[in-house]
């Protein structure tokens, strides 16, 4: 370390020599897996992503929307990986559900990207006009208006993770979920389900068995497109490194237990395969609802 510092202080030109040159692209999924296993450092740090979706076994059409976008900018001064990931689960019967989830996801992403652009491409290093949490809060409001406008009577959940560097900011409404999955076996739900039945269960009013058959088991007490005023939950966490970020609709988590999610995610060859296996597991368990999953890993 001291040698490195001395070099750094003497002249800037030496720095190039100290950085390992690693061919980062194009890497196949298998190669990525190898890279992840031996835990060498990747430069620049970046996100790998997979996604999966299925209508399930009991519904006739899909009302979920998912979105994933990653980018990396690295110029020596500042290496910045960025990602935006969304899962939205629409509801409200024919037509309205899919319109609601799609409108919410698209509006949210547009709102966020419009605000990230200037900061990403500014040469003066100026940052954002608003804070990341303010941008997401604004995005949820916009998305809500879009749902009311385009899918009147419909509603949707919305779980958005905006990852900048090593920080994940999650805006969340409804009962889709965000998980952190650590290689040591922990799976941690970082979102709270805004579901009436879950709430009753938490308060000890009903037990799990009653919850499964409760007539209001699909009722959300917070959702986009509903007339009641609501506030999204917005929280910032450190991205698990090593580890994964998983976003999913309730079509996955109501039927596939946490330890099974962990097993599938950590044993699959690649992130897209892991997502495929998660969807398959939900379908094998009956596939009662649409299933959407987005899985992200931070490689660094």
């Amino acid at each position: 370390m001291l040698d490195f510092i001395r070099k750094v202080f003497k002249s800037g030109d030496d720095q190039q020599a100290t950085k390992p040159t690693i061919e980062t692209a194009p890497l196949s999924d298998d190669q990525l897996q190898v890279v992840a296993k031996v835990e060498i450092s990747l430069n620049p740090p970046q996100f790998a992503v997979g996604s999966g979706q299925s209508v399930g076994r009991q519904r006739d059409h899909n009302e979920d929307t998912l979105f994933a976008l990653t980018a990396v900018i690295a110029d020596g001064q500042r290496d910045l990986p960025i990602g935006i990931f969304v899962v939205a689960d629409g509801m409200g019967g024919h037509q309205h559900g899919e319109v609601a989830s799609s409108a919410a996801a698209r509006t949210m992403v547009e709102h966020v990207l419009t605000r990230l652009y200037p900061a990403l491409f500014s040469m003066t290093g100026n940052g954002l006009e608003e804070s990341i949490q303010e941008i997401l809060e604004g995005g949820v409001k916009e998305a809500h208006r879009a749902v009311v406008r385009m899918a009147p009577g419909g509603g949707t959940t919305l779980t958005v993770a905006l990852v900048v560097g090593e920080q994940v900011t999650v805006a969340h409404v409804g009962d889709s979920r965000g998980y952190f999955i650590y290689p040591d076996g922990r799976t941690q739900v970082m979102t709270q389900d805004h579901s009436l039945v879950r709430r009753l269960q938490e308060l000890g009013q009903i037990n799990e068995k009653e919850a499964m058959s409760h007539p209001q088991r699909n009722v959300l007490y917070r959702a986009l497109g509903q007339p009641e005023p609501f506030r999204p939950d917005i929280n910032t966490f450190q991205f698990p490194a090593p580890g994964y970020l998983l976003l999913c609709s309730d079509g996955l988590w109501t039927v596939v237990p946490d330890n099974e999610i962990f097993r599938i995610v950590t044993s699959a060859k690649s992130l897209p395969e892991a997502c495929n296996d998660l969807v398959a597991a939900a379908n094998e368990a009956g596939g009662p609802d649409n299933i959407s999953v987005v899985l992200v890993k931070y490689l660094h």
């Binding site: 500042r78 940052g127 954002l128 804070s131 900048v164 090593e166 920080q167 900011t169 910032t236």
Partner: peptide, 14 residues
């Protein structure tokens, strides 16, 4: 009171 991401220099919250 600011929280700013250490990598990007973007505000996380204010």
């Amino acid at each position: 009171l600011y929280a700013v991401d250490g990598k990007s220099g973007w505000a996380v919250w204010r």
